[in-house]
């Protein structure tokens, strides 16, 4: 089998003239996508949607997609970001619609703006997570969170492909509370929409704001810390969703990383 992809050594790739920042969600069953899986889906979607994406040079050119800290495999997200380099200016709303149509259901484009000013990475230093804990009572979660927040430092161990690493969960934890983060979310026990079997009808919700660190503190690490400080062990796997990413303000809220671009674009 002769297998050669046409390269562009003879005719160098056209330059990037515009960059668009896209916010997208990873939902439902597709929360099990790894970052590599997400990236492959996007590479195919830009081709399918005929987005004029810029390519790297060389014999195996790849589309210019820059990723910002991906949610781990198994976590859903309402706030993932990618920046796309383009060879021709486009209307970001058109791009969002075309890309969304070309992606599998569950990878959903939420917003797109023309990139201006500071890089995306400089606009994100924390994430807000919503974690469903089937089979856990809110009161028990609240007690465990109190215990965790009362410490100065709480180190958990994570096994990574490159070995064991110690992670200070408490140091990265900005806020954590029972219940959803929205004003209407009361800290009561709710039934999960898809009812985990054997977990009982109870399902506590935790909202946590976690500062970006290296290595990143993930929802699993926070749960690990709750086990260490208070012996809290959910009887069924927890389900985490990243609700937002952005810059932390003094109240512990997150500023929309696309906000300033949108103002620039429309102003």
């Amino acid at each position: 089998m002769a297998r050669v992809r046409p390269g562009e050594a003879a005719n160098p790739a056209p330059p990037t003239v515009q960059r668009v920042r896209v916010r997208f969600a990873k939902r439902g069953r597709l929360r099990f996508l790894s970052h590599r899986d997400v990236a492959r889906s996007f590479e195919r979607a830009v081709r399918r949607a005929a987005v004029p994406v810029a390519h790297s040079h060389g014999f195996s050119p790849h589309p210019r997609l820059s990723w910002i800290g991906a949610a781990p495999t198994g976590s859903a997200s309402e706030a993932e970001y990618v920046e796309i380099g383009l060879t021709r200016p486009v209307d970001p709303a058109d791009l969002a619609a075309a890309l969304d149509a070309a992606l599998p259901a569950g990878l959903d484009v939420l917003d797109a703006v023309v990139a201006e000013g500071k890089g995306l990475a400089d606009r994100i230093d924390a994430s807000r997570w919503r974690v469903e804990l089937p089979g856990v009572r809110s009161a028990d979660l609240a007690a465990a969170l109190d215990a965790l927040l009362a410490t100065d430092s709480l180190v958990v161990e994570r096994v990574t492909p490159s070995g064991r690493r110690n992670i200070d969960v408490r140091a990265a934890l900005v806020r954590a509370e029972v219940g959803g983060a929205g004003p209407g979310d009361a800290p009561v026990d709710t039934v999960p929409p898809d009812g985990h079997p054997g977990a009982g009808p109870t399902c506590a919700i935790m909202t946590a704001v976690v500062r970006q660190t290296t290595p990143a503190v993930r929802p699993d690490d926070v749960l690990g810390a709750l086990d260490v400080v208070a012996g809290l062990r959910p009887p069924a796997p927890a389900k985490a969703t990243r609700m937002a990413q952005g810059l932390l303000d003094h109240r512990g809220a997150l500023a929309d990383p696309l906000g300033s671009d949108r103002v620039t674009t429309r102003g």
Partner: peptide
């Protein structure tokens, strides 16, 4: 029966292969 399968998926390697929902 996805609800029965879902709690098992975080515990296996490459869970995405069991979820379906591919393009087409």
């Amino acid at each position: 029966m996805f609800a029965d399968l879902e709690p098992l998926l975080p515990r296996v390697s490459k869970p995405v292969q069991y979820v379906g929902g591919e393009l087409n």
